[in-house]
Amino acid sequence: SHLLVAEPEKLFAMPDPLQPDTAQRTLTTLCDLADRELVVIIGWAKHIPGFLSLSLADQMSVLQSVWLEVLVLGVAYRSLGCEDEVVFAEDFVLDEDMSRAAGLTELNAAISQLARRFRTLNLDREEFVMLKAIALTNSDSIYIEDMEAVQKLRDLLHQALLELECQRRPDDPQRAGRLLLTLPLLRQTAGRALTTFYSIKTRGGVPMHKLFLEMLEA
């Protein structure tokens, strides 16, 4: 219930109505949305029990390594209801054609694959918030100084997931494990997102906010 309360309000992408609906506008909207999501994710992380007990340096290392996993998990969860469409925001849904036009075919295929996996599992909101908090603490950053503290947080959230599933689905003892086994695909998908955003940055021409650039370069 703590995690449900910590869940941020949804963001809107608000594509610029004065700009023609081009690939350029799609990418600009996407990068602007990602920047605002980042601010929200950083604020959200502070509400995850124990996160603020990490040193500031470790909080930074953790977020720098997992922010895209947290972001992508949210997008995949929002996309559960629609096949082959990626819901970056309620007012910014990219189907296959729009994705192709913007050069986002591979990213959208990857997020759709993750969303399909969650759809098959019938992932619900409680499980989604649990998994997102676990993804935060599942960092493998080599810059973490006190890995034991991060591991302790991870164990705590893992335990909470086990208890949740034990209460709600005592007939399905594999449920928690099945959810945790989606984490490799989440990491792979976030890797795809990183490659995509990085190549947009390298090509240039799409405005990117400072925080987004800072995290992309981290």
Binding site: V39, I42, G43, L56, A57, M60, L63, L211, E214, A218
Partner: peptide, 15 residues
């Protein structure tokens, strides 16, 4: 840390 100024600042904000 100088390179990650904004993240640093956002984490230090009390919100």
């Amino acid at each position: 840390k100088e390179k990650h100024k904004i993240l640093h600042r956002l984490l230090q904000n009390s919100t």
